[in-house]
Simulated scan of single mutants.
Amino acid sequence: MQIKNSVFLVVLACLAGCATLPSSGPTGKQIEKSAIAAANGAPIQLVQVQAVSDIPAVIDAALPASLLPDRETPPTDMVGPGDILDINIYEAGVTLFANTGNGGQLTQMTANPGVQVQKLPPTRIDDQGDINIPYAGTLHVAGLTTGQVEAAIRKALKRLSQNPQVIVTLGQAITNSVIVGGEVARPGRLVLQTNRESLSDVIALAGGYRGNSKDLMVRIMRNNSNVDVRINDIVENPSLDLRIRPGDRLMLVDDPRTYSILGASGRVEQVPFRRSTVSLAEAVATAGGTNPNLGDPAAIFLFRFARDAKGKEVPTVYHLNMMQTGSYFIAQKFVMQDKDVLYFGNAAANQPSKLVQLISQLFSPVLTVTSAVSVIQNSNN
């Protein structure tokens, strides 16, 4: 009897020392209460989603285009620093330029009965936007088209040569190009042939993307601004297929979108988006629904940093009661976003059952010891 009483005293002491019962997280009421309390000192918003009108709007598709500074589409043959020009000068009669065949050296004032053409060595436009032409001197050509460069050279040689004709072509284009890097087949410099190429055009010209389109994000950098566009979103929303401008830099990175599942669900994990658009109903199904032994279907919460009218991020908690029929229709229209946290509230009604289960686990060894003591005492008698 003394052994039995001692064991019971130990068990009671253990129960007295238990401050809280094991739990997968707070209950729905606890979340609502803490969110309301925090809202008094912090900008946390609690939204009771009871109708389709309560669903947060999807991010405006025109937003990425508005974040990039727009600039005029330059002519495709406009030149600038770094470009290399091929210059051919045609002369008749008395010529300034003549190819004597001795290493391509230029001789001055040569009389020829026919038309002579002189191809100048590849001419690079320097950092100040200037080129040097024999007998014409230094000419500033940055920002001009090849036709305007031809006119400038012809004008500079007019008094020195008899009716010179000039043809200028781009040997290597730097100004009219973009840089493409990351997950593409051929990263590097890409020359825009029409200056009307869209984002998808540039990716295709770079050999296409590598990897899964749903996981790829394109960062477009223009001047000091940048925007992010996902490959899959371009397919579903053509307005995101932005016009690319010379000087832009594009970087394709592998950046899967994910959402986290926590609380009393069928499983707790981080889930990647299977498609570009995932509804809340699909996310709940992926989580295995509410754990019948722990969770409360009336306490489904979504945690998100939502943007207000001024574009500022505000921590927001959306609450759905999946015990109501209408919530299942609302969940089909509710679109998940990257880094959302889907939480399944713990059921308050499960606390007594947990207590009984805990007491049962604690008393099982006591019953075993008591039974063993009784057997020993009976055998001694």
Rank of each mutant, 00 (worst) to 15 (best):
M1R: 13
Q2I: 10
K4T: 11
L9P: 00
A13H: 11
L15F: 15
L15T: 01
G28F: 06
K29H: 06
K33V: 03
S34H: 13
G41M: 11
I44D: 02
V47Y: 02
A51F: 09
V58D: 00
A62M: 04
L63K: 07
S66Y: 06
S66Q: 10
P74D: 05
P75G: 03
M78A: 09
G82K: 02
D86I: 00
N88Y: 11
Y90P: 01
G93I: 04
T95S: 11
A98Y: 14
N99F: 06
T100Q: 01
T100H: 00
N102F: 15
G104Q: 09
G104E: 06
T110R: 14
Q116R: 05
Q118D: 08
P121D: 07
P122F: 14
P122M: 09
R124D: 01
D126C: 10
G129D: 05
I131M: 07
P134D: 03
A136E: 03
G137Q: 12
G137C: 09
A142V: 03
A151T: 05
P164K: 09
V166D: 02
Q172T: 13
A173W: 02
G182K: 03
G188T: 03
L190T: 00
V191G: 00
L192Q: 04
T194S: 14
E197R: 02
E197H: 00
S198M: 13
D201M: 12
A206L: 07
K214H: 06
K214R: 14
D215L: 09
M217F: 01
R222M: 06
N223R: 15
S225D: 12
V227D: 03
V229G: 07
D233R: 02
I234Y: 01
I234K: 01
P238W: 14
S239A: 15
D241W: 04
D241A: 04
I244V: 06
I244A: 05
R245M: 09
R249I: 10
M251V: 04
D254T: 08
D254N: 05
D255S: 14
A264M: 12
E269R: 14
Q270W: 12
V271Q: 10
S276G: 11
T277G: 08
L280K: 02
A283L: 06
T286C: 10
A287V: 00
G289E: 04
T290F: 12
N291Q: 02
P292D: 05
L294Y: 03
D296S: 08
A298P: 11
Y318A: 00
Y318Q: 01
M322P: 08
M323P: 03
T325C: 07
Q332T: 05
K333Q: 12
V335I: 13
Q337A: 10
D338P: 12
P352Y: 15
L355M: 13
L355C: 03
V356M: 14
I359M: 13
Q361H: 09
V369H: 05
S371I: 05
A372Y: 14
V373D: 08
S374V: 14
I376Y: 14
N378D: 09
